[in-house]
């Protein structure tokens, strides 16, 4: 399987990474090199094999439905590039 330049642009949009036109051919080459490498997996017969969903056999633990951490809005916002009145600030989303 390999990707064309339109697919490279589509992936970049999905990944929310701005890509300039002159980067596209280069990225296409690199992505196709990786895809060619993983194509080796095509020869493996996986019929009847369950996909691994847990690395070690364990049940997901549950915790009590109580507040364990909270009231730390200031700490949460401390690294925000832009915040105001206890909120993250972003460009206008809805016109």
């Amino acid at each position: 399987m390999s990707v064309d330049q339109a697919t490279v642009r589509r992936i970049a949009t999905l990944a929310r990474i701005a890509v300039s036109e002159d980067e596209v051919p280069h990225l296409q080459g690199e992505l196709n090199a990786i895809l060619a490498f993983v194509a080796e997996l095509d020869e493996v017969d996986v019929s009847g094999v369950e996909p691994m969903t847990s690395v070690t056999p364990m049940a997901l633990p549950l915790r009590a439905d109580v507040v364990t951490a909270g009231g730390i809005a200031e700490a949460v916002l401390r690294n925000a590039p832009m915040s105001e009145d206890g909120y993250f600030v972003v460009p206008k989303v809805i016109e």
């Binding site: 990707v3 992936i11 970049a12 992505l31 993983v38 493996v44 996986v46 996909p51």
Partner: peptide, 30 residues
């Protein structure tokens, strides 16, 4: 990092998830 995020986005995207990601997880079982 950009390259890996893009490869990851591709193999998880609609229509490719089973062919890539699920298959790789099956190989992991093996």
């Amino acid at each position: 990092v950009r390259r890996r995020v893009m490869i990851g986005t591709y193999v998880l995207s609609a229509g490719y998830y089973d062919a890539f990601y699920v298959k790789a997880q099956k190989i992991r079982t093996l």
